[in-house]
């Protein structure tokens, strides 16, 4: 299904679709078809971007980091709306989080515990970011999650 079929009409060019029954010249037809095609292409690429988990994840991560990097409260950091939306992405976020952790260890433990219900971190490792990161990366490898570059 194309975006136009899904919406029912062209969102930015309603009139273009409703001149079909009116007698028009070939040039107008060509202009209309090319205009429709390019707009559809443009809107589809936005739609694909918004539904791409990796794009969504990195947009949310960027917002979350910008607004919480100066905080110490794990609770405040983890309750940030963008972080909660990452948790809301569910299992699809796990390989993205693990890949991010591998390169930039950070506060992903709350999200991983919430999504997976697992905790590979030993009590004596709590708060030790490097050791906790290694524990989760080992867990991810055992579970067969791919890591992205």
């Amino acid at each position: 299904m194309t975006l136009i079929n899904f919406i029912g009409c062209h969102p930015l060019n309603y009139n273009l679709l409703h001149v079909g029954t009116v007698a028009i010249g070939n040039e107008s037809k060509v202009v209309r078809e090319r205009g429709t095609s390019s707009l559809e292409h443009f809107l589809e690429s936005i739609s694909i971007q918004l539904s791409n988990p990796m794009v969504k994840f990195y947009n949310l991560k960027s917002k979350w980091e910008d607004e919480t990097a100066m905080l110490s409260s794990t609770t405040a950091i983890s309750m940030h709306p963008a972080y909660q939306q990452i948790i809301g992405m569910g299992p699809v976020a796990i390989p993205l989080i693990l890949s991010e952790m591998k390169n930039n260890p950070g506060h992903w433990f709350w999200a991983l515990k919430s999504i997976t219900g697992e905790d590979p971190v030993l009590p004596e490792q709590r708060g030790r970011i490097k050791e906790m990161t290694e524990a989760w990366l080992s867990w991810g490898m055992e579970q067969g999650y791919p890591l992205y570059e």
């Binding site: 110490s72 260890p105 030790r128």
Partner: peptide, 28 residues
């Protein structure tokens, strides 16, 4: 660095992130 936070730093600890979070993520 993300290895320690202000609570740890004030306590003289540069190896852990201290916070009493309910999910038992951090050291307390």
């Amino acid at each position: 660095t993300t290895e320690y936070n202000c609570i740890a730093w004030a306590a003289g600890d540069t190896e852990k992130w201290w916070w009493p979070d309910p999910l038992y993520v951090d050291y307390w």
